[in-house]
């Protein structure tokens, strides 16, 4: 009896809490915190091919003067903005149409829009590379068929079209995911509220702005943060479609880090850029947690 009570007390006490979160903390430390510290440490040294001496913030200084780093950062920012508008915005509009507008075939539509998400990014890249192939690709054949000119360098080979194409493929890939999150949030809004708005005389657009959007604002912020962090970390799609080319036109931090570390053999410089990406990701990650907490409070 006495021992049972002791166990019970242990099960309720703070020690038990630590035991329960212990494994997660250990895994997090071993696989996230420790590599992050190592990366930071690595970034403070010169490349192994240049002697590997401690150079403090030398790699970061070099970064500031590296035009490709700025191209990559600019592309990341464009990617974020474009994806916010196109993935979250379009996803929300599609969700609203499926939620309120379409009665018939909405399940089919949802499946079609969602489907690309289950394809691996590498497969998506290969598929679109084939579609966009400038001599025999589907798009070229379509353009020829209706008598439209096709860009001389193809699409992925053109410095001005390649990045928009990557954005387009990304949207095609992820808009269904955003739509699904938004749709789930919209379906949480009571039907009565929409009817009340209808009786109050609100138009479809007014209803969307006054009822739907405020009702899904946490989901909207969540989607936004997912897109921001995802766009900032993006790698596979760019790597498979253009590998940062032509030239460095579509370089993003993810591809530039991999290229610096493994193709140009500058692991320490790459570590420095990784630290920058990590800092930005932490910033937005904490915003995400904050968003979740404020949601819990209301």
């Amino acid at each position: 009896m006495a021992s049972t009570r002791t166990i019970n007390r242990a099960l309720r006490g703070p020690i038990f809490d630590y035991i329960m979160i212990g494994p997660a903390v250990v895994l997090f430390s071993v696989f996230i915190v420790w590599p992050a510290i190592q990366t930071l440490y690595t970034s403070l040294f010169a490349e192994p091919t240049k002697g590997g001496a401690f150079i403090g913030l030398g790699n970061y200084r070099e970064m500031m003067g590296d035009p490709v780093f700025w191209i990559a950062l600019r592309n990341n920012l464009i990617f974020i903005l474009a994806n916010l508008v196109l993935q979250v915005g379009l996803g929300t509009v599609l969700a609203a149409i499926l939620d309120r507008g379409i009665r018939r075939g909405s399940t089919l539509m949802r499946t079609i829009i969602f489907a690309p998400l289950v394809i691996a990014p590498v497969a998506i890249g290969v598929m679109w590379k084939m579609i966009l192939e400038p001599n025999f690709g589907l798009l070229r054949q379509l353009a020829d068929g209706i008598g439209l000119p096709f860009p001389t360098q193809g699409i992925l080979g053109d410095p001005y079209l390649a990045f928009p194409a990557i954005i387009g493929v990304g949207v095609w890939n992820y808009v269904g995911f955003m739509m699904t999150i938004m749709l789930a949030a919209m379906q949480g809004i009571s039907k009565d509220v929409y009817e009340a708005a209808r009786i109050d005389g609100a138009s479809a657009v007014q209803t969307f702005i006054s009822i739907t959007l405020p009702g899904v604002r946490y989901a909207l912020v969540l989607c936004g943060l997912i897109v921001i962090v995802g766009s900032f970390k993006t790698f596979e799609l760019v790597y498979v479609l253009t590998a940062g080319g032509p030239g460095n036109a579509t370089q993003v931090l993810g591809t530039y880090i991999v290229e610096s570390a493994f193709l140009v053999f500058q692991p320490n410089y790459a570590a420095g850029m990784s630290v920058i990406v990590l800092l930005v990701a932490i910033l937005f990650g904490s915003l995400q947690v904050y968003n979740r907490e404020s949601k819990v409070k209301t």
Binding site: S190, D192, V193, E195, A196, A197, R198, I199, D200, G201, S210, I211, P214, G215, R217
Partner: peptide
């Protein structure tokens, strides 16, 4: 349309605009 009929309705769930 409902708003053109000169009616007002009170719902069981109140259907207040939560925000």
């Amino acid at each position: 349309e409902p708003d053109e009929r000169g009616i007002a309705m009170v719902f069981q769930s109140y259907a207040l605009y939560p925000h």
